[in-house]
Design a protein around this nucleic acid. Sequence first.
DNA 1: CCTCTTGGCAAACGTATGTTTCAAACATCC
DNA 2: GGATGTTTGAAACATACGTTTGCCAAGAGG
Lengths: 212, 212
Amino acid sequence: MAQKDTVDRILDAAEALFAERGFAETSLRTITSTANVNLAAVNYHFGSKKSLIQAVFVRFLEPLADSLSDRLDAAQADGQELSLDDLLSLLASAILSAHGEDDVNRTASFMRLLGLAYTQSQGHLRDYLRDRYGSVSTRYVDLLRPACPQLEDTDLFWNTHFALGAAVFSLSNYGALDAMLKDDSGQESRIMNVIKRLLAFISAGVQVSVKV
Amino acid sequence: MAQKDTVDRILDAAEALFAERGFAETSLRTITSTANVNLAAVNYHFGSKKSLIQAVFVRFLEPLADSLSDRLDAAQADGQELSLDDLLSLLASAILSAHGEDDVNRTASFMRLLGLAYTQSQGHLRDYLRDRYGSVSTRYVDLLRPACPQLEDTDLFWNTHFALGAAVFSLSNYGALDAMLKDDSGQESRIMNVIKRLLAFISAGVQVSVKV
DNA sequence: CCTCTTGGCAAACGTATGTTTCAAACATCC
DNA sequence: GGATGTTTGAAACATACGTTTGCCAAGAGG
């Protein structure tokens, strides 16, 4: 099982380092020496750095997409409609459970990666993720529509992206923000409470309809 | 005035390229050849790439900070309290006017930079900006408190960061989102309308209080 | 006229990066 | 147990980067 070991050690190291410093700022040498594997192992097992980046995302998104699909199946089985808050907490718990609730830091660091995937150019990643996970996300958004009957499609489009921004930004900078809060007020936050706040914020914002 | 020309050409090129591709992904060679100046000019005029990055931010933030201060002065002169919506649209118009409303693209691309400053590690930038513009931002947040009397300090802290995330994310990806919307619905957005939507979204979300 | 400063230019420097190579070690199967 | 295919290891490769250097042109001041 030497191979699986090596591959996973590389993925672990890459995931943590990418989340911490970004893609371009993380060299293969840093990754391989953190993972205690030979430099050439990355190109041997993954082919290139680009493919490594994609593999990191796939390893996280695959269970998430499955978990989200399962929960949607279960929730839709009753036949009754899902409310906005149902849908939001369903998504939140799918994300949290995708790799065990215990490892909340991993979730936070994945949110950071998600943010990076958007902000850092990495066009190849965006395209790759879209055509691999587009159907799940479309299914989710389609459920949002009847949950917010007062919204036009354009309202829904922008509101969901505002919400996505709030989530990605705040969770991906959770570490820095928590430190800032502690500086200012001496208090410390717990990530579950922040997620609760975030869901409330999003829920209120998403329902806003704007006539232009 | 050969110098000012060179300095500004570098700043223009750097601003656009950084916004488009990020800091690490933009080389000095790309910047200088876009700006039609010699490679050594960057290190001659700015000292280093780090200082160039800072200079790009200062060139944008300085007028913005001034414009925001002025507007706050003017608004506070009447003596009457500022509502949340007053404060939000005041900030929005300060940002838009900081470099002329005509060049909305420049504002969008600056939002992208702002997002990068958060997500890309660039610790030096974060510290530098904080101690240079911390006082203006503190002043603004202090006005937010009485405008949302029902909020605890912790509510306000997280809600403002959620709002910041929504703004930075959506505006900095405005180009991509607009294209996506057009693909989906054939419609096209105008950025002023999106800003209007964003303000409504934020206004609703910020006022949410959460008991934990 | 000479000197000194400022800005620009081409070339080079040193380093770090992603990738490739090739031989050695290892595992697997007949 | 030897042959075969797979995985590691150390080294090299080619390239791209930020930065530095040394020289030249133009202008200012005495």
